[in-house]
């Protein structure tokens, strides 16, 4: 059988909020090492890679590897039924046709079970090569969300230009143009407020706002976001999920026609 328990169901709620605008369904690969999801959005422009390690769960048991196709919208609806302080347990039998979500209140006076039918999905897995990136930026996730939101008003895409002076985000369109520059700031009072720029080579890449604004939905999972970029390869936008894992979004850059 498969059983995974998280004392803080809020983490799983936030994970669902971070993927539900990009994915309608996804295969959850469960093994001894944890839960992995790799899925592209319907337009095949971005890829979501989610990893939740088994040792990050409060209880984890997976007797045999399982691939469970799940409706993200249905899972999201079920997780909305969990109380903020509830514990969540995911449970499935071997060769499952459904998965059960069990929510337990902190004082154990309420137990709710939601059973969700699994869906058959074509297995499709992409090999992501190890890449050494020209620029790796760490910055507050709230700041990144704000920049994407603000610049989206000016155009459909945002250009990221990284130089030794810092990183400049810019957008332009029919109404005008805007740019926001950030310089390295490792003296911030709090670690989560730091901006760290590790640049090997300057670069300039353009990405679609529509997808960036989906990625920033992972902001509540982590105070910091890491952006890894090189010429002609996808941007990696990574949020750590506490001590349990991470969510990485890959986005192909836009190219000049």
């Amino acid at each position: 059988m498969f059983e995974a328990r998280l004392v803080q169901s809020a983490i799983l709620k936030k994970v669902l909020d971070a993927v539900k605008d990009l994915l309608t369904e996804a295969t959850f690969e469960c093994s001894d090492s944890g839960i992995q999801v790799q899925a592209m959005d319907s337009a095949h422009v971005s890829l979501v890679s989610l990893n939740l390690r088994s040792d990050g769960f409060d209880k984890y048991r997976c007797d045999r590897n399982l691939s469970m196709g799940m409706s993200i919208s249905c899972m999201s609806k079920i997780l909305r039924c969990a109380g903020a302080e509830d514990t969540v347990t995911l449970r499935a039998w071997d060769n499952p046709e459904s998965i059960t979500f069990i929510f337990e209140s902190p004082n154990k006076d309420k137990l709710a079970e939601y059973e969700m039918k699994l869906i058959n999905m074509d297995q499709e897995h992409l090999g992501i090569p190890e890449t050494s990136y020209s620029c790796v930026i760490k910055m507050p996730s709230g700041e990144f969300s704000r920049i994407c939101r603000d610049l989206s008003q000016f155009g459909e895409s945002i250009t990221f230009a990284c130089s030794k002076e810092g990183i400049k985000f810019s957008a332009s369109g029919d109404y005008g143009s805007a740019n926001i520059k950030l310089v390295q700031n490792t003296d911030a009072d709090k670690e989560e407020e730091a901006v760290v720029i590790d640049m090997q080579e300057p670069l300039k890449l353009t990405f679609a706002c529509r997808y960036l604004n989906c990625f920033v939905k992972a902001g509540p999972l982590c105070n910091q976001v890491q952006l890894s970029m090189s010429d002609d390869v996808p941007l990696v936008c990574e949020y750590k999920i506490g001590d349990i894992g991470h969510i990485k979004y890959y986005l192909a850059p836009k190219i000049d026609d």
């Binding site: 971005s46 890829l47 992409l126 890959y250 190219i255």
Partner: peptide
């Protein structure tokens, strides 16, 4: 500008 698809960067396994 045009948008490349993400699967063109990765290999199917």
């Amino acid at each position: 500008m045009s948008q490349r698809s993400i699967d063109s960067f990765f290999t199917r396994i």
